[in-house]
Structures are given as C-alpha cells and as structure tokens.
Computed example of a mutant assay.
Amino acid sequence: MVRVVVLDYGSGNLRSAERALRRVGADVTVTADFDAALSCDALVVPGVGAFAACMAGLRSVRGERIIGRRLAGGRPVLGICVGMQILFERGIEHGLETAGCAEWPGTVDRLEADVVPHMGWNTVRAPAESVLFGGLDERSRFYFVHSYAARRWELEVRPPFPEPMVTWATHGDDFVAAVENGPLAATQFHPEKSGDAGAQLLQNWLKSVS
C-alpha cells in the first residue's frame, strides 16, 4: 500500500483529499511534519485561496524545501489547484507578485474570460501518452474552482526528467489543466471532487508511484 502524506500547511481541502485517496487504496496521513512529508512514498500538496497566502503557509512548514528535496531524489509529488500554481516561478494577483517554488518556469495570473471564477465541470485535452489520464477519454469532465491559472507554458527540459507533458483546458482562453514531469505532477482541477474520473486519475497516479 502506498504511503501518502497530504501536506497540512493551512490551505486546501485536506479531508476531501484524504478521503478520495483512501478510496483508491492509499495509506494516507494528513500532517505538517517535515520528516513524515519527506520520507513518505508520495506527497500531495493541496491548496485553495490566494497564491501569496498559500506560499506563506507553505514556507511556514518548510514545504518548499520538502518539495525540492523530494524531487531532487526522484520522489513523487502531486499538486492540486493552488498546490499546482505555487509550483510555478511566480503568481500575480491584484497587482501583487509573489515568488513560487520555481519548479516550473512561468507565471500564474488571472484568467481572461467573461465569467470568473471558472467554477464547475470542464473537459481537458491530455497528451495521448499521459499516465494520469490513462483509461479516460476526451469526454471525461473534471471539477474546477479558480480565477487564476498558468495560461502559457515555457517549455523546458530539466535533466534527468523527460520533457513535461502538459494538459490544457479552455475557459475564455487556454490554460494549463495538468502537468506530468517525472516525479512531479499537478492538476488545476480538484480530482477529489471530480467523481469517477477524478478517482481514476488518483488511482493512475498511485499506480505510477508504487
């Protein structure tokens, strides 16, 4: 059984993520403990709210160090919603620029759409070779709640990891809906709120790290 830590840094749907992961067979602990988060088989970094607040919370538990050290050792990390956004270099909200974890290049900024936030179900366009979306077809729908996203992808290959696989969605314009990059993966949507499709994605992720 895969030992998963859901990182508790004061932001995110912790219990929803815990329940969803338990349902697909993970041994889950919700904690802010540095050593537990570093040594587990797989780490989930959730997040809701503002980019700056999430980064402040993450730093308060040395979360950016945990993520960096895990990835340096090839140990799996999954970011969800703002937990995905903070993996980019920076976020800009209400004119405030905040440094992120810089695991990926690029900026998270406001969606350009007639209706913001983007709230509800949407389809995504995943690469054919995607592991996360294996067994899911193009009609599968996932649950989004966000006003900000990475709307461009600056391709960069960081050895020894392969070229990132980027999944896109559209709300007004295109934005990054998920990324798979060696041991680092993330989704802008909430798999724990996305019914059977979300459960399948979490199961795929667990199989990829076991």
Rank of each mutant, 00 (worst) to 15 (best):
E192A: 12
E89F: 03
T98P: 09
Q188L: 13
N13M: 03
V82P: 04
S147R: 02
A17I: 10
L14T: 05
V2Q: 09
G83R: 04
V24D: 04
E18I: 02
E156N: 15
D35P: 01
S210Y: 07
A150I: 11
A42F: 06
V209Y: 14
T31F: 00
R3T: 14
G195I: 12
V45H: 05
R69H: 10
V82F: 00
V116H: 05
H171I: 08
F142G: 07
G73Y: 00
H94R: 12
L201A: 12
G79A: 08
D27R: 11
D114Q: 15
S147I: 07
R70I: 02
D8A: 02
D27E: 14
G12Y: 04
A128G: 07
V44C: 08
V77E: 00
V4I: 07
H94E: 15
L21T: 02
T187I: 11
G134A: 15
L7N: 00
R22Y: 06
V157L: 13
A20S: 04
R59G: 07
V145C: 11
V116S: 08
S130H: 00
Q200D: 06
G100E: 05
R90W: 06
M1E: 10
D109T: 13
V48N: 01
W104C: 11
K207C: 13
R75Q: 02
D109V: 05
H94C: 12
A17P: 01
E154Q: 15
V166T: 08
D41K: 04
G172R: 08
V24Q: 02
V131Y: 05
T170C: 14
D33N: 12
E180A: 12
A150Y: 10
T170M: 08
A52S: 15
A99C: 13
A17S: 10
P191R: 12
A178Y: 11
G182C: 14
S60G: 07
V61N: 02
Q203W: 14
G198V: 06
V124R: 03
L201Y: 11
I67N: 00
G95N: 04
N13G: 02
P183W: 13
E89R: 12
A126E: 02
G100Q: 05
V124I: 14
G68Y: 00
V108S: 09
F161A: 15
V30M: 00
G135M: 08
A36F: 04
F189Q: 02
R23F: 06
P183S: 14
C101I: 13
V131Q: 14
T123F: 04
A126Y: 03
C54E: 04
